[in-house]
Amino acid sequence: MSREVQVTFDAADPGAQAEFWAVALGYRVQEPPGGFATWEEALEAWGVPPERRNDASAVVDPDGTGPRVFFQRVPEGKQVKNRVHLDLRAAPGLQGDERMATLETEAERLVGHGATRLLRVDPEPPLIPGNIVMADPEGNEFCLD
């Protein structure tokens, strides 16, 4: 039996992380529950104090096929390299110069939204197609693949 998967990130600013990853993944920030026009309205109605209203956020695939990505506030900052990371398939099926040019374009776009470029790995056929290692605004590594 297969299971639905949610990817969870610890974060200092869940709302900002959700906004970044919505752009990076082509997702959207999750809508507030039925009966509420905004999350602020829902949290106010539930009695959540203002200082706790950015404790969590999530993004969802608008097509409903990809996993939900959840961001939860934690008190400590990121300390070491991720043991698990996301690969954003920005150039599937492309090879060589065309692949790397496509990855470079996506890297530039994401840097414009707060990502940091860490490393370019050039192609070494037949096993290494080439990728770009990036970090999100809070330092979580991911690859453009």
Rank of each mutant, 00 (worst) to 15 (best):
S2N: 12
R3F: 13
E4K: 14
E4R: 15
F9M: 05
A11Y: 00
A12D: 10
A12P: 01
D13M: 03
D13T: 07
P14N: 05
P14F: 10
A18G: 15
A24L: 11
Y27K: 02
V29F: 00
Q30G: 15
P32L: 04
P33N: 07
G34Y: 07
G34H: 11
A37T: 08
T38M: 07
E40D: 10
E40C: 00
E44P: 01
A45T: 05
V48M: 10
P49A: 03
E51M: 02
R52I: 00
D55F: 09
A58N: 03
A58L: 07
V59M: 05
P62I: 02
T65Y: 15
R68S: 11
Q72W: 06
Q72H: 13
R73N: 09
R73F: 15
K78H: 12
K78S: 06
V80G: 09
K81G: 14
H85P: 07
L94R: 15
G96E: 06
G96H: 08
G96C: 10
D97K: 14
D97F: 01
R99G: 04
R99S: 06
T102W: 02
L103K: 05
E106H: 10
E106R: 15
L110D: 08
H113N: 12
L119I: 02
D122A: 12
D122K: 02
P125N: 07
L127G: 03
L127C: 01
P129Q: 06
M134C: 04
M134H: 03
M134Y: 02
A135T: 04
A135P: 04
